[in-house]
Amino acid sequence: MNIFRLGGDLAHLLAIIILLLKIWTTRSCAGISGKSQILFALTFTARYLDLFTNFVSVYNSVMKVVYLAAAYATLYLMYVKFKATYDHNHDTFRLEFLILPAAGLALIINHEFSIIEVMWTFSIYLEAVAILPQLFMVSKTGEAESITSHYLFALGSYRALYIVNWVYRYYSEGFYDMIATLAGVVQTVLYCDFFYLYITKVLKGKKLQLPA
């Protein structure tokens, strides 16, 4: 565990908390893509299948449980409790366009052809693109609330910090994982345009509005 990895985990946790608090306090999930949230729930379900078979540390297990619980709590709030506020007309991204390629790629490019390893690899590929429905929704409506922007910034920072962690681990431990690193780079690159808008607009107190 190094400071970048911890920072990444905390940024991820912060993103999840921001999203849950936003939905809970405003009693609304307007502007949030339920499709992206489904993909995140699927991602962490596939990745943490080893929760009971591979004990790493108390920290590791607790974080896994928290991420899973938060992912399903978000789905519950969006699709059950505050269903009426869900903006499904703008959330039209086709999930199969992301799930099927991620599953196909996981079957072909993996570290080992076993169920748990292919599921882990699938989760890595799926997570890389899971935010696309959300970004698509923002581009469709042309704007995002500030709180949604903060959520996206924290979520994007998480994988960016993991990349720094992987560079650090490569030099300090000689450790590297090509699958996680390449997917992590793709994931972070997808946020670049958003990062630019966030820094130039939201941090200056303006609403995130896409240029016409």
Binding site: D9, N54, V56, N60, Y162, F175, A180
Partner: peptide, 10 residues
Amino acid sequence: GSLVETKDEL
């Protein structure tokens, strides 16, 4: 041997 070590990440 990255197969096992990477699983300590989240």
